Simulated assay, not measured.
Amino acid sequence: MDVYARLEELGITLPKVVPPVASYQPAVRSGAHVYVSGQLPVADGALLAEGLVGTDITPERATELARYCALNALAAIEGLVGLGKVTRIVKVNGFVASAPGFTGQPAVINGASNLFGEVFGEAGQHARAAVGVAALPLNAPVEVDLIAEIAD
C-alpha cells in the first residue's frame, strides 16, 4: 500500500512536526522501530482544547482531538524516517485527562486507532492502552504516543 496515495485519497494533509514542550525528541529510531513521543492535539502551533473529558470536553470532541494527536504522531514519523517506511503500527498508548467517574477512555482513543487503520489498513491494527489520568501537559485533554515498525 502506498501510504502517501492513501493519505491523499483520505484528504489528509500531515501537519508540521510539533516542537517539543520539554527536553525530548518528537520521535527516535532504534533499530527497526520508531518511538514517537506523546503528541497533544495541537494544530498550527495551538492547543485545540483544554480541560477534563467528561466535564470540560465532551467524549465526542475528545475522540476528534485524539485523531489530531495521531496526525501529529504521523508527522513525527514522516519527519524522522518517512511514512513510506512504516510496515506496522505496533503499539499505541492513549492518555485521557478524565473527570472523576469518566470511564470512556477506550472510545476516546479510538479516534487515534481508527485513523491508523484508515491510513495503514491491516498494518495499522495495533496493541493499545487507553488510560485515564488526572492531568496532562498544558491542560490537554488527550495525549497519544506510539511505536511503529519500519523497513530499511
Rank of each mutant, 00 (worst) to 15 (best):
V119M: 02
P106C: 04
I77G: 08
I89N: 11
V36P: 14
D44T: 03
L136W: 04
P137T: 02
A97N: 10
T87W: 05
K16S: 15
L10H: 13
R61V: 14
V90I: 07
N93E: 12
A27K: 08
I12D: 06
L10M: 11
P15T: 08
N72L: 12
F120N: 08
E60W: 07
V36N: 14
R88L: 08
R67S: 13
T13W: 01
Y68M: 14
E118L: 11
P20C: 14
I89F: 10
F95N: 02
F116S: 05
V96P: 01
E60F: 11
A134L: 00
P106S: 05
H126N: 09
I57E: 07
G124Y: 00
C69S: 15
V142S: 01
R67L: 12
D56G: 04
V142H: 01
S98Y: 03
P100C: 03
G51C: 13
T103S: 12
G94S: 11
V28M: 10
A27W: 10
R67F: 12
I147R: 06
G94Y: 10
S23L: 14
R29K: 14
Y24C: 14
E122K: 00
T55L: 06
Q25G: 03
P106A: 06
Y24T: 14
V92C: 11
P26I: 11
D145M: 10
R29W: 02
A22H: 14
D56M: 06
A107H: 06
V36M: 13
K91G: 01
V119R: 04
R128H: 04
R61D: 13
G82Q: 09
T63P: 02
A127T: 10
F116A: 05
M1I: 13
N110P: 01
V28I: 15
S23A: 15
T103I: 03
P106Y: 03
V144D: 05
A76G: 12
P20G: 15
V131T: 15
V17D: 10
L74T: 13
A130Q: 06
G104H: 07
N93D: 13
G79L: 11
N72D: 09
